[in-house]
Amino acid sequence: MGDGFAVDAEQIRTHAHHVEALKARFEAVKAASTHIAQDDAAYGLLCGWISGILESKHGRQDELIAYVEENLSLAVAGLRRTAEGYDAVDDAAAILISRVESQLDR
């Protein structure tokens, strides 16, 4: 079967887990960004005015991060569905082979 390919559903699930970990990092960035944006003292007394200017920038940044988070969530869901699909095909093939073997044994 040189033209075929082998898929390890567990590797796909592991990849989905890694993508989820990346999504968690974006959540941490968003949380830190929100904390700094709401804290005039985050930049010190001399530069406290910066937080007001950056506040408007955080809105667009939050939209972009939410977009990335949504895409990562969709990727994780797709990867998990793919792994489940491969498992289902493998299970169905195993049942079919078992039935054929039992027919041959008769």
Rank of each mutant, 00 (worst) to 15 (best):
residue 67 Y to E: 07
residue 60 R to D: 07
residue 96 L to A: 15
residue 102 S to H: 12
residue 84 E to M: 10
residue 77 A to N: 05
residue 106 R to Y: 10
residue 106 R to V: 12
residue 103 Q to S: 11
residue 56 S to E: 02
residue 9 A to N: 08
residue 86 Y to E: 11
residue 5 F to I: 07
residue 60 R to F: 04
residue 12 I to A: 01
residue 23 K to N: 09
residue 13 R to D: 05
residue 31 A to R: 04
residue 2 G to D: 14
residue 7 V to W: 00
residue 36 I to G: 02
residue 7 V to M: 01
residue 77 A to R: 06
residue 6 A to F: 14
residue 18 H to R: 13
residue 73 S to F: 01
residue 68 V to Y: 04
residue 3 D to C: 09
residue 63 E to F: 03
residue 42 A to Y: 00
residue 30 K to T: 06
residue 71 N to D: 12
residue 104 L to N: 14
residue 104 L to Y: 12
residue 59 G to A: 06
residue 42 A to D: 00
residue 41 A to T: 15
residue 13 R to V: 04
residue 63 E to P: 01
residue 81 R to Y: 12
residue 16 A to Y: 00
residue 102 S to E: 14
residue 66 A to S: 12
residue 85 G to I: 05
residue 94 A to W: 03
residue 91 D to F: 13
residue 10 E to D: 15
residue 38 Q to T: 14
residue 102 S to Y: 06
residue 38 Q to L: 11
residue 86 Y to I: 15
residue 9 A to D: 08
residue 106 R to L: 13
residue 12 I to H: 00
residue 91 D to Y: 13
residue 30 K to E: 09
residue 41 A to D: 14
residue 91 D to A: 15
residue 96 L to R: 15
residue 52 G to A: 07
residue 14 T to I: 06
residue 56 S to V: 02
residue 88 A to L: 05
residue 48 G to T: 13
residue 99 R to T: 05
residue 84 E to G: 09
residue 63 E to Q: 09
residue 91 D to P: 08
residue 62 D to N: 12
residue 3 D to N: 13
residue 38 Q to H: 13
residue 44 G to W: 06
residue 17 H to C: 07
residue 63 E to G: 03
residue 1 M to H: 10
residue 27 E to F: 03
residue 8 D to F: 03
residue 46 L to V: 03
residue 65 I to G: 00
residue 12 I to V: 11
residue 26 F to N: 00
residue 80 R to I: 04
residue 50 I to F: 05
residue 92 A to E: 04
residue 6 A to G: 12
residue 80 R to N: 08
residue 45 L to I: 07
residue 79 L to P: 00
residue 54 L to P: 00
residue 58 H to R: 04
residue 13 R to Y: 01
residue 71 N to L: 10
residue 35 H to T: 15
residue 88 A to S: 10
residue 75 A to V: 07
residue 5 F to P: 03
residue 44 G to I: 14
residue 24 A to K: 03
residue 89 V to T: 14
residue 95 I to N: 09
residue 25 R to I: 08
residue 43 Y to V: 05
residue 19 V to W: 02
residue 50 I to Q: 06
residue 47 C to L: 15
residue 9 A to T: 13
residue 2 G to I: 11
residue 105 D to K: 13
residue 105 D to M: 13
residue 99 R to Q: 10
residue 44 G to L: 06
residue 35 H to E: 15
residue 86 Y to K: 12
residue 98 S to I: 04
residue 67 Y to K: 11
residue 2 G to W: 11
residue 92 A to C: 02
residue 85 G to F: 08
residue 34 T to H: 13
residue 75 A to L: 14
